[in-house]
């Protein structure tokens, strides 16, 4: 019980201490958007022939004629009331856009992380157990390959092989093919929503759409995860407590899994948190290649259109997710490692 309360206290403290950083991100992106080249008022004027008055009117509508500090205060007030502004390209409120697109990105990222962990941890463990053997070298090669091939290249290669050549993957556009009807919205995660609706046909369709982009993303992050698993595993295999376990004649499986691996997973957990946040923001290339309707491609489109509000909303979203992920990792770490909660 006391461990639960200390964990909760620590999580609360961490959350509170990250609020100033969130505020800083807010102000920074706001200012950044204002110094970027390109005038949104010009961009959204009815056409190249639009007169000065029309542009001026749009500017007034958008509040761009006010001094920057006032714009900032208004912006902060809006965010406080949950209004992230309206996207000029989609015409929808940014909050609604992000809400509808975030599940797509999250589902893809979670799946990719899951695949990456399921691949990287066994690889890392195998490499550590047979250090210097051919397995170790093969793992190193796979990691190098994963890092050096850019995601859009590996994504296109996978599409070429599995869609074009072999024909086993579905058309790489979007989350479901056009013949499948969307499930009733529950969580926004298609795999869950289809399962809730009991539509297993649709579930298979969504899953098969997800496989290629998820593998593409996973390929990119297998390397750091496998390397950290290997290093942590080597350290814990060489530790005194593993030697103790051996000296007591514990079965090899128990020594490797319960004693060595469980300790080695602690640093992996930290890295997985970082990798997750990075993936979520950096998967814009994958989303583009697979026409995935996620938040990253949405933000990129908005940026190219000098559409400030979605970009600010996206950055704020990413910062919040980063905070939440860190918090989660922290709590998990506190549960996994009893030493942390003491401090």
């Amino acid at each position: 019980m006391s461990q639960l309360s200390t964990t909760a206290k620590r999580a609360g403290w961490r959350f509170a201490s990250s609020l100033p950083a969130l505020f800083g991100v807010l102000v920074f992106t706001f200012l950044l958007m204002r110094v970027l080249p390109g005038d949104p008022a010009v961009f959204f004027a009815s056409g190249p022939s639009a007169g000065k008055e029309e542009i001026e009117m749009i500017r007034q509508q958008m509040g761009l004629d006010k001094p920057v500090p006032e714009q900032l205060v208004r912006y902060l007030g809006d965010i406080g009331s949950g209004n992230l502004g309206r996207s000029l390209t989609t015409g929808q409120p940014v909050l609604a856009d992000l809400k509808s697109r975030l599940p797509a990105s999250l589902e893809l990222t979670f799946m990719a992380l899951l695949i990456a962990l399921l691949t990287a941890i066994p690889l890392g463990v195998a490499a550590a157990l047979r250090q210097g053997s051919w397995i170790d070298h093969v793992v190193r090669f796979i990691c190098a390959l994963g890092v050096c091939v850019p995601t859009f290249v590996s994504g296109l290669l996978l599409i070429y092989a599995f869609y074009y050549l072999l024909g086993i993957a579905p058309d790489p556009t979007g989350r479901v093919d056009i013949f499948t009807s969307q499930p009733p919205l529950v969580t926004g995660f298609l795999l869950i929503d289809f399962a809730v609706a009991g539509d297993w046909e649709g579930w298979r369709a969504a899953a098969s759409q997800l496989v290629l982009p998820a593998f593409t993303m996973a390929l990119f992050v297998v390397a750091p995860l496998a390397r950290i698993t290997r290093a942590a595993m080597l350290a814990s295999l060489g530790s005194d407590f593993v030697r103790t376990a051996r000296s007591l004649g514990l079965p090899p499986r128990k020594v490797i899994v319960t004693y060595a691996l469980r300790n080695a997973l602690l640093p992996v957990l930290t890295i997985a948190g970082i990798v997750f946040s990075t993936m979520l923001g950096a998967n814009v290339l994958v989303e583009k290649v697979f026409s995935w309707p996620g938040v990253a491609s949405y933000a990129l489109d908005a940026l190219l259109a000098s559409d400030y509000a979605p970009v600010q909303g996206f950055v704020l979203l990413m910062a919040s997710i980063f905070v939440v992920v860190n918090l989660t990792v922290d709590v998990l770490y506190g549960i996994a490692d009893p030493r942390v909660s003491v401090e």
């Binding site: 530790s239 005194d240 407590f241 030697r243 103790t244 376990a245 000296s247 319960t258 004693y259 469980r262 300790n263 602690l266 996994a336 490692d337 009893p338 030493r339």
Partner: peptide, 12 residues
């Protein structure tokens, strides 16, 4: 062993 604390599994 020497260093008894290190000789025990810290998370068990």
């Amino acid at each position: 062993f020497q260093n008894p604390r290190g000789a025990l599994n810290p998370i068990r």
